[in-house]
Amino acid sequence: MTVESTAARKPRRSGAAGKRTGAAKKQQSPQASEPQLVQLLTPEGERVEHPEYDIELSAQELRGLYRDMVLTRRFDAEATALQRQGELGLWASLLGQEAAQIGSGRALRDDDYVFPTYREHGVAWCRGVDPTNLLGMFRGVNHGGWDPNTNNFQLYTIVIGSQTLHATGYAMGVAKDGADSAVIAYFGDGASSQGDVAEAFTFSAVYNAPVVFFCQNNQWAISEPTEKQTRVPLYRRAEGFGFPGVRVDGNDVLACLAVTRWALERARRGEGPTLIEAFTYRMGAHTTSDDPSRYRHDDERLAWEAKDPIQRLRAHLEAAGHADEAFFTALEEESDTLAKRVREAVRAMPDPDDMAIFENVYADGHALVDEERAQFAAYQASFAEEGN
């Protein structure tokens, strides 16, 4: 539903109150105009230009973006299947959001730092995190599965919106260190209603932090539509905090790449934060414990399937002669190999070390943690003694 249709609902009260409401609606009408959407690739795969955000990519780079999206989607599908087979406790699918994640992820430099939520599998792929490492937490055998500082990619964050504050604090530190790197924080439309996000916006603006807030507006915060999160397009919230906001076609990998690259360069130049709203759609369930058929209609999903990010880039590649059938066949074989490796790796994951919970709590150790470790070790040993 558009902002206009939300604002057009009739007021419940009548009389003078109704007149005041009508006057307020007239005052709000400029804000209810259709938001500008940055797009470089139409749903039909036609390349278009944009006066502010444009990008030139070689055929090889375009094929690389397509490969990233295809392999990410295949990994995601395999993870969903593994959860259905009882191999994972839960999984949050990114189906339909590949362009937003691959486009923004490929805009990053190696020295930039990423703060994800729990659905950024495509960004993790761009940062060089092995896909199998994403699955340990969802299988319940580790607390994350990778060293964040190896790839400048923080561990997945389950607490909604908290990572925006972490990203802001880190970006403030980057600025104080005099580095020219940037920070990016990912969150969803539902998380935009969290107080943590508002606080992150405030601090980042006041301290001119080199951070990009990348909101993937996939239309549904679990079962709540975006219209119940905001009265204006999400990207316009940035205006109230004093920094720019941009809405980009989240199913257009080229537009996501161009806009994110611009925002990151802006941050590196010391011009402060930017909010990017990637307007996309969650094609599947919120997580594997969700049933989207209970709160949204199939015709909505079908309409968005026509805007599929992978299909539109394939159409462009074929029309421009940038890829042949051999390329697509080889990529399909590569995706099959990836899926097989993921299946085997998950089923071979060892049970966690009982004492691992005490590791990495403090950088230099702590007397209380040492005491608790000893107590837990003695407790575990008591079971072995009873067995004898």
Results as ranks from 00 to 15, higher is better:
E4H: 11
A8Q: 10
R9C: 10
K10R: 13
R12N: 07
R13N: 10
G15L: 05
K19F: 02
G22S: 13
P30H: 00
Q31C: 03
Q31H: 10
A32Y: 05
A32S: 11
A32G: 03
L37D: 00
E44W: 00
R47S: 02
E49K: 11
P51C: 08
D54T: 12
E61D: 10
E61S: 10
R63C: 13
G64V: 04
Y66H: 14
M69A: 07
L71Q: 08
L71R: 12
F75V: 04
A77P: 01
E78I: 00
A81E: 12
L82H: 10
G86H: 09
E87M: 08
W91L: 03
G96K: 11
G103R: 05
S104E: 13
R106I: 04
R106L: 07
R106H: 06
E120R: 09
E120C: 05
G122V: 08
W125P: 00
D130A: 15
L135W: 08
F138Q: 09
H143C: 08
H143E: 11
G144M: 03
G145T: 10
F153G: 09
Q154V: 01
I160Y: 09
T164N: 15
T168P: 10
G169T: 10
Y170I: 02
A171R: 07
M172A: 13
G173M: 06
G178D: 09
V183I: 08
I184N: 03
F187Y: 15
G190V: 03
S192F: 06
S192Q: 10
S193D: 14
S193L: 05
G195K: 12
E199W: 10
T202E: 07
A205H: 15
P210W: 09
V211L: 11
V211T: 14
C215G: 02
Q219F: 14
T226Y: 03
T226M: 10
V232C: 04
P233E: 07
L234I: 15
E239S: 14
G242N: 12
G245C: 12
D252E: 06
C256I: 02
R266D: 15
L275W: 15
I276R: 13
Y281S: 01
T288V: 07
D290E: 01
D290M: 04
L302P: 00
L302N: 14
I310G: 04
Q311G: 06
R312I: 01
A320H: 04
A320M: 06
H322C: 07
T329K: 10
A330H: 12
E334Q: 14
E334P: 12
L338K: 05
R347V: 08
R347P: 02
A348D: 14
D351I: 06
A356C: 08
A356I: 14
I357E: 12
F358P: 05
F358R: 04
H366V: 09
E372R: 13
E372S: 05
Q375A: 13
A378T: 12
Q380H: 06
S382L: 05
E386W: 13
E386H: 08
N388R: 14
